[in-house]
Amino acid sequence: MALLDVKDLSLGYDSHTIIEGLTFSVNAGDYLCIVGENGAGKSTLMKTILNLREPYGGRIILGEGLKRSEFGYLPQQTIVQKDFPASVYEIVLSGNQGHCGWRPFYNAEDKKRTLEAMERLQITDLSKRCYRELSGGQQQRVLLARALCATKKLLLLDEPVSGLDPKVTVEMYELIESLNKDGITMIMVTHDIHAALSYASHILHIGSDIFFGTRDEYVDSEEGRYFINKKGEKS
């Protein structure tokens, strides 16, 4: 049984279907990259997996005892957060909200998990700093630490390196890879086909043609060759 089984899923917005008959599965320990053109529905797919929007058809089945409250999510930054007065610790701590249910306050276990996540991402010394004063890379680490508080199993990353400079981008990818080696399953939406090819174990290509398979199968496939060449010319 896979961690996540997506069966015959249809997606879209404003009652306009953009993807039909999408079927794929994610096993524990996989590193899946979702690639495709702008507007192909990558973010929509991610939001559907996260239950933030309803699919138009099809099903998403959770396996291996995975619960909704055990999803981790690294969203793209919102405008609200740019001017938000909150300390790093407060934000990372809020990742434990899923464990709380109706319990109003965080318990000792939540706080321990918070400190561990900050330690793991090397942001312990930023603990009291204000989120809005951090650099882009530091902010991403904070949000990643928050996601680690929420999950030990599955992380969904939405364009985790957008707006970061090349050096920080590489660090971020290495961090994600090391978390994957720790046993956290990754699903990442990205523009960056080269990163997808160097880090992912599986690739899901969405657009007019849908491809799902391992990275090596993708490189050999027709969609893959076409897309990789096209992207290669651009950059």
């Binding site: 939001k47 996260l50 239950n51 933030l52 619960k67 909704r68 409250s69 999803f71 981790g72 999510y73 969203p75 919102t78 609200v80 957060q81 938000f84 909150a86 934000i91 809020s94 990742g95 909200q97 899923g98 928050r146 996601a147 929420a150 999950t151 969904l156």
Partner: peptide, 12 residues
């Protein structure tokens, strides 16, 4: 307030 989508995604 900080992140409604994230809160929803983890089941709040």
């Amino acid at each position: 307030t900080f992140d409604e989508d994230f809160a929803k995604a983890i089941g709040t």
